[in-house]
Amino acid sequence: MNTTDLATYNFAYLDEQTKRMIRRAILKAIAIPGYQVPFASREMPMPYGWGTGGVQVTAAILGPDDVLKVIDQGADDTTNAVSIRAFFQKVANVAVTTKTREATIIQTRHRIPEEKLTAGQTLVYQVPIPEPLRFLEPRETETRKMHALEEYGLMHVKLYEDIAKNGHIATTYAYPVKVEGRYVMDPSPTPKFDNPKMHRSEALQLFGAGREKRIYAVPPYTDVVSLDFEDHPFEIQTFDKPCALCGAKNVYLDEVVLDDRGGRMFVCSDTDHCEDRCANGHRGHLAYNKEAAE
């Protein structure tokens, strides 16, 4: 993105009227957990696929005392995360960090940090498709009606078809949840591994979809339950081995190819979590080969 012309813009890039509009939407979203509040999404100096919804939410809430962390697939150093972090350093002169526990605002794509979030923190999700019913019903007027009438039978039918076909629910990303027993919500394309972290989280969770012009929220201590069936209860992904670098168990792992002979290893997707564990002396079975792997 082009950051050379940004110096003349307002604090956090957005004009005050846009911030007010987004702030009003955020308050309504918090008051109606899981409900998608329409908002007048603005053009941002980056393409839609870059998380403009999350960027607008962050820009509307961010203040000079905040410490911002940006992750993409669990990593702070991908192009998307680096660009968004640089954008906010430029337009808001905000302090940034890669450490989960130091951040007051964490903007994310695809992951929830492994470390438990706390009451002072706000997690801002970048959402491509906010409507969990969209693949069942393309018309917005109809999906609105389904949410209004709490008509979620079709969603259960779709999940059950999965079971009939595969013997289990095949959906592993953007696995639908029900919020506070009322609205079915898309948790954004996080792995279903992260769904339990949303349930009664101490942190405030805000979701921004730029292209689709929707903001929604999960307040702290709010029930977030993954849809399932009595005979097929919801299960998260499990991994056979711990992280090859830090030895962490019960975390989400990414596969890394080591060589062209089929060698590979599984490592923490949350890079800050992995580095923190390594710094504290935890070792996985390939820990000393990290440089060789890279």
Binding site: L27, I61, L204, P219
Partner: peptide, 9 residues
Amino acid sequence: FRTLMDCMA
């Protein structure tokens, strides 16, 4: 706003 957001949440 942040005060209101925290209090509403």
